[in-house]
């Protein structure tokens, strides 16, 4: 436990709160990097996922591509892109955006697919245009699974951003690699604890968000469903907050 005491001391050490290697600065870098990556990945993945989910076209391709992308080891992609574009923040941004796309894409289109087809059919039959169906029916009902995808992507990026410090002067991961180089275990362990705390905090925040984005009326928390109402069951089933697609 001595090691942990050292690590905690390292975290609390005032000297680690000033200069270009200050903990708040590294934390901010880590968060900004994560946020920007997520925004870039979302800008690509959400519209594409919605298109796939609404039209039902291109799903096979999306599944295959996403599956392939996920099997690729992150470190390999990071180092390869870093060799191409040089050491710096560009490589992590490119590599991590690519890695964050599959979970968001899957969240977007599975969110649409999980909606009872009859609900969409009825919306069309009463006279909603395709755009209105997307806006008023599919987006709100698909939100929980999209947030689930964003949650996966966020944790993925937080984790990989740590690894990105291997090729760029970036984020909390620097402490791990700097400590490794100087054999300063307190720094390595302290940095690791910070990353883990950050990941768990974001996990908690997303768990809360997911509770709130389940549209009222489909959360299953709004009371018992009467017998004979088979229509909403598939939706509410797939939107369970403890759905394995959303919790990792």
């Amino acid at each position: 436990m001595n090691l942990f005491a050292d690590a905690v001391n390292w975290i609390l050490e005032p000297a680690n709160y000033v200069g270009s290697n200050a903990i708040p600065l590294r934390l901010a870098q880590h968060l900004v990097f994560t946020l920007v990556t997520l925004v870039m990945a979302s800008a690509i993945a959400i519209p594409l996922g919605y298109l796939i989910g609404h039209t039902g076209r291109g799903r096979g391709l999306a599944v295959t591509t996403s599956g392939g992308l996920r099997a690729i080891p992150t470190l390999g992609l990071l180092t390869l892109v870093a060799l191409w574009v040089g050491i710096g923040v560009v490589a992590p941004y490119v590599a991590l955006t690519v890695l964050a796309i599959p979970p968001i894409l899957a969240g977007a289109y599975t969110g649409f697919e999980a909606i009872d087809r009859r609900t969409v059919d009825a919306a069309r039959a009463v006279g909603m245009s395709e755009l209105q169906i997307v806006q008023k029916v599919e987006v709100p009902l698909g939100l929980p699974l999209l947030i689930g995808g964003l949650r996966s992507a966020t944790l993925q990026v937080i984790a990989t951003a740590t690894l990105a410090a291997y090729v760029a002067d970036l984020g909390l991961g620097r402490y791990l690699f700097a400590g490794l180089k100087t054999r300063d275990y307190a720094e390595m362990l302290g940095g690791s604890m910070l990353v883990i705390l950050l990941a768990l905090a974001l996990e908690g925040i997303f768990a809360l968000i997911q509770r709130f984005v389940v549209p009222r009326g489909v959360s299953g928390r709004v009371g018992g469903r009467a017998p004979g109402t088979t229509d909403s069951t598939p939706v509410s089933h797939s939107l369970r907050t403890e759905d394995p697609t959303v919790a990792r």
Partner: peptide, 22 residues
């Protein structure tokens, strides 16, 4: 079609209500 449908009432077997609206 969209305009036509808005002028015709439609009731289906499973009610087809939007689950997230009152």
């Amino acid at each position: 079609p969209v305009k036509l449908r808005r002028g015709i009432g439609y009731v289906m077997q499973n009610s087809g209500l939007l689950p997230h609206r009152t």
